[in-house]
């Protein structure tokens, strides 16, 4: 099977790459939303994410990737409880997917052929402890969005239908991409994403040339290309593992907390989720740089991606939110 285009081989788009790395370091940041034009490498970057993630340990054959026997839902019947390492799941949620497929439903196959009432786990189960990727997230139908919001909030998927009463953990990181010109994202869902980005096509010719050159090499000289870049990806993965360990050691100083709070206050972001995400993102960034402590610079770098989509806004206000964040950053943190 062909591997997806390697992450490290993506040219430019530094902010997007950083955001993806930060979520890989600290999954509790809460995922990334990438908005941008077509053909800017959004999907490529997200699909490359899987290769960056350190493996998880899970019970073999468990549909919800439980780490051990105790945390397995009671409806899962397995003969052995051996655990093994497996890749962190990155699950695609396709457009037009049915509700049954997302939440899981009565296993029709078994119901019809054997007359058994069994539960067939859905995408939310497979995405547990991993990532759930929605391409064209703004085109997702409203009732699926409602469902995702609910599950993302509670971390648990509850199925009550067709005589089934099933619950299982569904803690996943939402990763979405989309083209804003095709429709807007509901604010509630927007708020669920930790970091958000606006990507554009590279304007400068040399970058464009490099992009095409690498894409061409990937398609025509696959083996050599992968050999070169898989090693790079592995380096990033190792750095991510190191950074994860580093996370716990990083102390949060009062100064940083004050900066974060002032920033969010000045921007008028709703709720406290902005502060928390910003703090976590700054911490992940400091860990990524192997810094000893979180500094103002770290906060500054990640502030736009953590706050840009949280500004309280009039739906009709068209001033760029990136510009607003930048302006406030200048004012507050100097």
């Amino acid at each position: 099977m062909t591997q997806p285009f390697p992450f490290s081989a993506i040219v430019g788009q530094e902010e997007m790459k950083l955001a993806i790395i930060l979520t890989a370091i600290d999954q509790s940041i809460g995922g990334v939303l990438v908005f941008g034009d077509r053909g800017t490498g959004k999907s490529t970057a997200v699909r490359a994410l899987a290769a960056l993630l350190p493996p998880i340990t899970a019970v073999v054959g468990c549909p919800v990737n439980s780490p051990d026997k105790e945390s397995m839902p009671d409806w899962v019947k397995l003969d052995s409880f051996d655990t093994a390492e497996k890749q962190t799941p990155v699950v695609d949620l396709p457009l037009g997917v049915s509700e049954d497929r997302v939440t899981g439903a009565l296993d029709i196959e078994k119901a019809l052929t054997k007359g058994e009432k069994a539960f067939e786990p859905g995408l939310l189960a497979s995405a547990n402890r991993g990532f759930l990727y929605i391409d064209e997230v703004n085109l997702l139908e409203d009732h699926i969005v409602d469902l995702l919001l609910d599950v993302a909030q509670s971390g648990e998927n509850l199925v009550e239908r067709e005589g089934l009463s099933i619950r299982h953990p569904a803690r996943f990181v939402l990763v979405g991409s989309g083209n804003p010109e095709e429709g807007e994202l509901r604010p509630q869902l927007l708020d669920r994403f930790g970091l958000s980005l606006d990507v554009g096509s590279p304007k400068d010719i040399d970058t464009r040339i490099e992009v095409i050159r690498r894409r061409d090499a990937y398609e025509n000289d696959y083996n050599a290309f992968m050999k070169l870049w898989t090693a790079e990806d592995a380096t990033i993965r190792d750095q991510i593992v190191t950074a994860r360990k580093q996370l716990a050691l990083l102390a949060v100083t009062d100064d940083v907390l004050r900066d974060v709070a002032e920033l969010c206050l000045a921007l008028g972001s709703d709720g406290l989720r902005g502060e928390l995400t910003l703090l976590k993102a700054a911490r992940a960034y400091a860990a990524w740089l192997c810094a000893k402590e979180i500094t103002r610079d770290h906060v500054k770098t990640v502030a736009p991606m953590a706050l840009r989509h949280r500004l309280r806004r009039d739906p009709l206000d068209d001033a760029g939110s990136t510009a607003r964040v930048d302006r406030v950053l200048e004012d507050v943190l100097n």
Binding site: P202, K203, R208, I209, R215
Partner: peptide
């Protein structure tokens, strides 16, 4: 050829990089 396509597509206002590929 790559350079040419990159240049031309940019001149014609084609932002997507799929086109030159």
């Amino acid at each position: 050829a790559i350079e040419l396509f990159a240049q031309t597509s940019a001149t014609l206002g084609i932002t997507s990089l799929r086109a030159p590929s």
